[in-house]
């Protein structure tokens, strides 16, 4: 049983780390500010949660697991708020998003 839990938590932590790195890689690779935010939100959500889930499985039913769960909840509430504030501030400052060919930036 504990062997299966160990393997599951291994898998979760590895996948979380890989997702974090993919998100950061997208942050470097994407062409403009708005598209970079999509990449960063992978790190903030899936990568972080999988890492925390892996650690929760290692911690078992203790106060440590509760604290890890609180970190996950904190991310669930604060990361979209910060992202939305950034996007809104950028648009209010007049930073135009790069759009696909055929899309009219003045229309929406």
């Amino acid at each position: 049983m504990s062997m299966a839990l160990d393997i599951l938590s291994w898998f979760c932590m590895l996948a979380g780390g890989v997702f974090c790195a993919i998100g950061a890689f997208g942050l470097v690779r994407m062409p403009d500010f708005y598209t970079r935010m999509h990449a960063a939100s992978i790190t903030d959500t899936v990568g972080a949660w999988l890492l925390l889930l892996g650690m929760i499985l290692q911690a078992g039913l203790t106060l440590i697991a509760v604290k890890l769960l609180m970190i996950a909840l904190l991310l669930l509430f604060t990361s979209p708020t910060a992202t939305h504030a950034l996007a809104k501030a950028a648009r209010a400052r007049g930073l135009q998003p790069l759009l696909a060919p055929g899309e009219d930036p003045s229309k929406p």
């Binding site: 997702f19 993919i22 062409p31 708005y34 992978i42 959500t45 899936v46």
Partner: peptide, 24 residues
């Protein structure tokens, strides 16, 4: 979220970067 993260990860890792940003 997991489903969409999988899609976006594949976009980031694909060499041609197949994005078509839109505002709706």
């Amino acid at each position: 979220i997991f489903k969409c993260a999988w899609d976006v990860s594949r976009i980031i890792l694909s060499p041609s970067l197949p994005i078509s940003p839109v505002l709706v």
